[in-house]
Design a protein around this nucleic acid. Structure first.
Lengths: 254, 254
DNA sequence: CAGTGGTCTAGACCACTGC
DNA sequence: CAGTGGTCTAGACCACTGA
């Protein structure tokens, strides 16, 4: 790794951040100040700041300054048995966020009918191009966008049910499917980390250097996939937890 | 979102990539060529390329050119009951990678004794500063680094066992703990997405725009935490899967 | 060796913030 | 209004790759 100028500047600032001299929320020296301090041109200063921004360490705010990023992750227990509880997704989300002492909200609910892309078709074990019902929304915590959720239902399951309604279902879509004979027996989650698309970055208002955590949840009855949910979470404020087997020893609080 | 020059250049290239005109592995036009095509200065071209790189779309190679990034994710079933099988972690990893038709390897095995950081102490329900045994290694797939793994054991559990040996344990650390009376009953995984530290980026040879997927796995006996494993996976080549409840309908292959 | 990306400078003007 | 970061240019030299 060459000791180039902008790397030295970046390293010096990084050390101050990880060393605790510059705490989360603190403002960095302005670009002209850094020029003088390190005796480099403005572009070099900006190269250094850009690399810190892309590491997720700092965040520049137009006309105000550059600041050390703050993180307030929200932890979701993703392995809770949803089928059992007679609650809607929304209720479960609201309860979890409120328990953490924070403020849940949601917006932008939409219902559409689309043809299944190859990704969706494969996971729902349908043919590509088959009709699917898509129900999507944006979740917020403390007024800031937190996750994009899109749920896909095979048309033959959704047809003639409340799933086709363009509004939220108060008692939950899982209950609605269950009363039509599609009882959820289990689910499979696939979790991955990537950088957001442009669209996602705007919807979740993510700055550069913030990845997303993407989760595909495929719900199964004993016979077939009955739902696919795609969640895209803001990476700087999300943590998913899974509990497998007996973890009663976790829940002791000393 | 302002229609600045470098954004226009980035958008044009992004469209060619997502539209399939520039396929994974393909080389982009060189910087001088892009200057002429878009009639902008070189710095503007580089701003555009940098933003694509930080989205994880392209990758610049010194002296060779800029290329569309290729992804070959490897999927891990993280909810498999490890306690039951009489296999070591290594065997499980090797088997999984080989099944996928790829080539597993590992290197850099190390055993150390450290004092527990606050993060480690909290998860193992120990006091900060308590002694812990750390066993760490680097896993590779097809010769490329894939994950960093560090396992932490409370000293009172590790003392006088094979866990203190500075080499890999062929029959697995879980079996070793079990025969000492610490039987794994379950575990809790915490999964998150973030940008790599400098060290991690080097160890996993991650370019800019590649996040990591971090997983904390806390293994419990019926009484207490017995192990903490921290995994840091290269985000562009990892997918974790969890199966909860009955997902037998997933395993049908039509 | 020519062509590629990597680093760096000096200077210009703009857009946004908050006093 | 002064101070901040955002965009853009023109030109220079360096380091690496592969023929």
């Amino acid at each position: 790794m060459p000791e180039t100028l902008y790397r030295q500047v970046a390293a010096a600032l990084r050390a101050q951040i990880t060393g605790g001299i510059l705490r989360p929320g603190a403002q960095l020296p302005s670009e002209p100040e850094l020029e003088k301090t390190f005796r480099v041109s403005r572009n070099t200063v900006r190269l250094a700041l850009a690399s810190l921004a892309n590491e997720g360490l700092v965040e520049a705010r137009q006309g105000r300054g550059t600041f050390v990023r703050e993180r307030t992750p929200f932890l979701v227990l993703a392995s809770a048995e949803e089928g059992a509880a007679d609650k809607s997704d929304r209720d479960a989300f609201n309860a979890a966020v409120l328990t953490a002492g924070r403020n849940p909200d949601q917006s932008g609910f939409r219902m559409e009918v689309r043809t299944a892309s190859s990704e969706v078709a494969a996971r729902l074990q349908l043919d590509e191009g088959t009709l699917v019902v898509v129900r999507s929304l944006l979740r917020l915590i403390d007024g800031r966008p937190w996750s994009i959720q899109e749920s896909f239902y095979p048309m033959d399951i959704a047809e003639g049910t409340a799933l086709m309604s363009p509004v939220d279902i108060p008692y939950g879509t899982i209950s609605e499917m269950a009363r039509r004979g599609h009882v959820q027996a289990g689910y499979r989650d696939e979790v991955l980390s990537r950088m957001p698309t442009q669209t996602e970055a705007v919807q979740l208002s993510l700055g550069p250097g913030v990845p997303v955590l993407e989760m595909f949840r495929i719900a199964y009855s004993v016979e077939r996939p009955i739902r696919l949910t795609m969640n895209v979470y803001a990476g700087d404020s999300t943590q998913l937890a899974y509990e497998i087997g007996d973890v009663s020893a976790f829940h002791v609080d000393p």
